[in-house]
């Protein structure tokens, strides 16, 4: 069974709810229908009811079993506004305006337990989805940096078929500080724990392996390693490693003499910056014929996901299934 089908099947075993704030988008309406019909999730579409109904009817898609909520008319507006301002110095009228926005209303549904996850981004830029996530569901405990990851499926990795890896951060943080890199590593381990078939083993990648080169960029990665060990002592994480030492046991054994639970066997790869991460994922995708699924957002208190603006109905359904696997 492909990795994707596994997540779809997993989702069918649970009855979870996803909120889709871009409810007027054709692809979102079609995806909501498919999720309902295939039993992957119950979808809540946000937006103007009449417009969504007209759009669905133009598409020839029935809406039975799909909930439509117009944030501006919702009976939950007071509750969500109160929760949004709680503990903050913010004018409640301003908060109410925020919560009426579909991305924020959707985020509050997740924050308040009325939906398990939010998937958005066919119209909204990634930065907007991240902002809404931070201000509604908030960041996970101990994490101060939202980030992203790709689930990479390598068709033939050293004789292993369909081998999954987590790559991070290939889409959001351009030049993470050591502290931000530590957050990315901790969040990626958590993502790996939900999505990988094996226990996550996190490698902090560099052009140097355990001091083979001296440079401020190498120090930077090592500072991140120290911070991760302080913040989350039980993580299986090591570095700094070159990519070959991280994933190939024979190379790792040659280059790294000290004992390590990660060397040669890493399945969560943390890149030092967006240059290396983004280049690596695209090269893996096209040169190794890998499937690159994502980017998914991580580091939030509850799972929310971004979509690319060009996402197809298939992409939206798959993203939702993987997002719900993290619930």
């Amino acid at each position: 069974m492909s990795v994707l089908s596994r997540f779809m099947e997993q989702a069918k075993q649970r009855s979870l709810t996803v909120v889709l704030p871009e409810g007027q988008d054709d692809r979102i309406i079609a995806a909501a229908r498919r999720m309902k019909d295939e039993g992957i999730a119950s979808a809540v579409l946000l937006g103007d009811r009449q417009k969504i109904e007209a759009q669905a009817s133009a598409l020839g898609v029935g809406l039975d079993g799909i909930e439509i909520v117009d944030p501006a008319q919702s009976g939950k507006l007071d509750e969500y506004t109160a929760a949004y301002v709680k503990g903050r110095d913010l004018n409640p009228n301003v908060a109410r305006r925020m919560v009426k926005r579909p991305l924020y209303f959707g985020g509050m549904m997740v924050a308040q337990g009325d939906a398990h996850s939010m998937v958005a981004g066919v119209a909204a830029p990634t930065a907007f989805v991240i902002q809404a996530g931070v201000l509604t569901v908030g960041l996970a405990e101990g994490i101060r940096t939202p980030s992203s990851f790709f689930l990479m499926i390598i068709p033939d990795f050293q004789g292993q078929k369909q081998k999954p890896f987590i790559y991070a951060d290939c889409a959001v943080n351009i030049a993470p500080t050591p502290s931000e890199l530590a957050d990315i590593a901790i969040a990626s381990e958590k993502s790996g724990r939900k999505l990988l078939p094996e226990e996550p083993r996190v490698a902090l990648l560099s052009f140097s392996t355990k001091g083979s080169a001296s440079h401020v960029n190498v120090d930077h990665v090592n500072e991140a390693l120290v911070l991760v060990k302080q913040r989350a002592a039980d993580l299986k994480i090591d570095g700094e490693f070159q990519a070959d030492a991280a994933i190939i046991p024979s190379v790792g054994a040659k280059k790294v003499k000290q004992p390590s639970e990660v060397v040669g066997n890493a399945n969560v790869l943390i890149f030092p910056d967006l240059n290396s991460g983004n280049i690596a994922y695209k090269l893996t995708q096209y040169m190794a014929g890998a499937k690159a699924i994502g980017p998914f957002l991580q580091g939030f208190a509850k799972p929310i996901s971004d979509l690319s603006r060009g996402a197809s109905v298939d992409d939206i359904v798959a993203t939702t299934a993987i997002c719900l696997a993290q619930v």
Binding site: L90, V94, A95, M98, A127, F128, Q131, V134, L135
Partner: peptide, 11 residues
């Protein structure tokens, strides 16, 4: 910060 910008618009 970018987070405050969004709320500034609402304000």
């Amino acid at each position: 910060e970018s987070m405050q910008s969004v709320e500034l618009i609402a304000a």
